[in-house]
């Protein structure tokens, strides 16, 4: 468990997924999972016996944003993989792309 902040990066312990934190609950320890297993720092080595939970294996999509139900956590998928993202047992959902004002 760790406090996350915008800009932090995490990688999956069980698949190729990598994410960047866009928004995180302030001052709170949170456990972000991918494939049902806690995500690790980019430079950490995953433990060899970690395996993906079948109910968290829908996969992640490059460039998509994922949020929890309360919208306290938002992750950007920077590398896709086979696992699904989660927070404290709840699976994150795809954040709908909003029409952003475009200028350049």
């Amino acid at each position: 468990m760790a406090q996350l902040k915008a800009g932090s990066r995490l990688r999956s312990a069980v698949c190729a997924t990598e994410v960047m934190v866009i928004a995180a609950p302030a001052g709170q320890d949170v456990q972000v999972t991918c494939g049902g297993i806690a995500m690790i720092a980019p430079n950490e080595t995953p433990s060899a016996d970690a395996s993906m939970a079948p109910d968290a294996s829908k996969g992640t999509v490059l460039g998509k944003r994922y949020v929890d139900q309360a919208s306290t956590l938002e992750l950007l998928c920077t590398k896709p993989g086979a696992g699904s993202l989660g927070l404290g047992g709840e699976l994150l959902t795809l954040k709908e792309a909003k029409a952003l004002p475009s200028s350049d």
């Binding site: 800009g7 866009i22 490059l62 460039g63 792309a97 200028s103």
Partner: peptide, 16 residues
């Protein structure tokens, strides 16, 4: 980097 990346993530959707 944080300024420009924040600008992009706040105003552009990936592969839109």
């Amino acid at each position: 980097h944080k300024h420009l990346v924040s600008y992009i993530l706040g105003s552009v959707e990936f592969a839109a």
